[in-house]
Simulated assay, not measured.
Amino acid sequence: MKAPIILETKTGTIIIQATELLYITVDDTKDHSLCFVTKKGTHYCTGDLNNYEDADQNWLFRCHRSFVVNLLTIREINKYERRVYFLDDSSNNNCPFSRRKYVPLKQSLKEILFTEQEAL
């Protein structure tokens, strides 16, 4: 089981489960603000994307300078549009990935899915 992400927001503490998070992005309107996009909505807190690409959370992958995706919720990696699409997402959210991150993104996705399959 993947450890949830605990956010300290202005309104209180929010716990985001690994299966609910789609991606994390930088909020350009505020300094040091991150936007956590989930299947049910968005949450904002202060922080740095670098904090979410460490080894403890191997299910997260930095696919772009401003985006970290949840490998467990990826439905499609579209090479030609350079976009990542997500499972069970009613809002049809997607995010970009950089050209040089395409191969590492595919490899990380394969590894995490293989690891998850073995755990079953």
Rank of each mutant, 00 (worst) to 15 (best):
H64P: 06
Q17W: 00
Q107S: 14
T46E: 10
V37W: 00
C63F: 02
K40Y: 08
N50P: 02
C63Q: 05
R75A: 15
T29M: 06
Y44A: 06
L72A: 13
N58S: 08
H43Q: 08
K10Y: 12
Y85K: 05
T13Y: 06
I14V: 08
Y80K: 08
E116P: 04
N92E: 11
I14Y: 00
K2A: 11
I15D: 12
L109A: 02
A3C: 06
R99E: 11
T25M: 09
R100V: 06
D48A: 11
I112A: 06
D56H: 09
V26F: 00
E118C: 12
N94A: 08
M1N: 15
F61K: 04
Y44V: 04
N78Y: 01
K30V: 10
V69C: 11
Y52Q: 10
Q57P: 03
V26W: 00
I24G: 01
Y52C: 04
Y52I: 02
L7A: 03
I15H: 09
K10D: 13
T115V: 10
S91N: 15
F86H: 02
F36T: 00
E53G: 14
S66Q: 13
E111Q: 15
E53F: 11
E8Q: 13
V68Q: 01
R75H: 14
H64W: 10
E53Q: 15
K110N: 04
L7H: 07
D88G: 11
Q17N: 09
E118Q: 11
N50Q: 13
P104C: 06
I77C: 03
L7S: 05
P104T: 10
F61S: 10
D28Y: 09
T11V: 10
P104N: 05
T11E: 15
D28I: 01
L72D: 10
T13A: 07
Q57V: 10
N58V: 07
R65D: 04
E20Y: 05
Q17Y: 07
L34P: 01
N50R: 02
P96E: 12
N93A: 12
D56I: 01
G47D: 13
L120G: 09
V84K: 02
C35H: 04
Q57I: 09
C35Q: 10
T9H: 03
D48R: 04
I5W: 10
E116G: 09
K79Y: 09
M1C: 07
A3I: 11
D48L: 07
F61C: 10
Q57Y: 13
Q107L: 13
K79E: 15
R62K: 13
K10G: 06
T13C: 03
I15C: 14
S98D: 00
E111N: 12
